[in-house]
Amino acid sequence: MSERIPALKKETAPPRSKRGKMLIRLLIALAAILLVVLFFRSPLSKIDEIQVTGNEFVGREEIEAALGVVPGDSFFFPGIGKLKQRAEELEPIESVLIIKNFPGVLRVEVKEYPQVAVRLSSDGGMSAILSNGLVLPMPEGKLPDKPILSGWSADDANLAELCRALSDLPGYLLSDLSEIQPDPSVSYPKRIKLFTRSRFEVTTSIDLLKDKIAYLSDIVQNREPGKITMLDVDYYSPYSTEIVTE
């Protein structure tokens, strides 16, 4: 007895319209890849100009070397975070803002540690001291509008703390200071003497200076020149009350 074998189902090919859509999608994907490749090979994807602003104590060339990029390098790589990290490794720089303006402009806005003092060398040369204690050559043409540190040794452990304290002073008060000398005693190992351009002589301690700023500012702005003591007890004595003996 013979059995009828069922006929095999024919595999149906995708409709022409579906195959056409798949082909179009493939062509679009290939075109997109081609455009991306061409874009990254074009001048539009390269750095055309590097703008550096805000730097005074660190040179433009040094900043660009730290960034590790030059005109002609990729505009997109390294990323902003990596460039910022590289620039902030430079000691005079406190922070950096990196901005990429398409096409081709890389902006580097630098914020350096502020200058708080000036140091004179034995040959009369001047160096700038920043708030982080870093000592750098004074930029050419810059006038010394910050206090001169005299009598300090380069390895004095109190020097860095003094620089941090000076950075907390109001700008007008810092610019009024003309000279700062170490004046340690047994009771006050961090005692200093400050001399102002407005003719005040101030005795205080580095670790007390931050808490005494308001008192010092009030006297300098509102009293006649004299001597100020700002230690555990504060005193003010105008020069006009001093008794002159012959």
Rank of each mutant, 00 (worst) to 15 (best):
T12H: 14
T12W: 08
P14S: 09
P14D: 03
P14A: 08
P14W: 03
P15Y: 10
R16A: 13
R16I: 08
K18M: 14
R19Y: 10
G20F: 11
G20E: 10
K21F: 14
M22D: 07
L23Y: 11
L23T: 12
I24A: 15
R25S: 13
L26I: 09
L26F: 13
L26H: 10
A29P: 07
I33L: 15
L34F: 11
L34I: 05
L34W: 05
L35P: 07
V37A: 08
V37H: 05
R41N: 15
P43F: 02
P43R: 02
S45E: 10
S45L: 08
S45R: 06
D48C: 14
E49K: 15
T53A: 12
E56G: 08
F57K: 01
G59R: 07
R60I: 11
E61G: 14
E61F: 15
E61K: 15
I63A: 00
A65S: 13
A65F: 12
L67E: 01
V70M: 11
P71Q: 05
G72Y: 04
S74V: 01
S74L: 03
F76C: 13
F76G: 08
I80K: 05
L83K: 02
L83V: 04
K84R: 05
Q85H: 10
R86T: 01
R86Q: 05
A87R: 00
E88Q: 09
L90K: 02
E91Y: 11
I93P: 00
E94Q: 12
S95Q: 07
V96Q: 00
L97D: 05
I98Q: 00
I99V: 11
P103S: 04
V105A: 07
V105L: 10
L106G: 01
R107C: 09
R107E: 08
V108D: 01
Y113P: 04
Y113K: 08
Q115V: 11
Q115Y: 04
V116L: 08
A117P: 00
V118L: 04
R119K: 11
G124S: 09
G124V: 07
M126Q: 07
M126T: 06
A128E: 00
A128M: 06
L130M: 10
S131M: 10
S131H: 11
S131F: 07
S131W: 05
G133V: 07
G133Q: 05
L134G: 07
L134Q: 09
V135R: 03
M138W: 10
M138L: 15
E140C: 14
E140R: 15
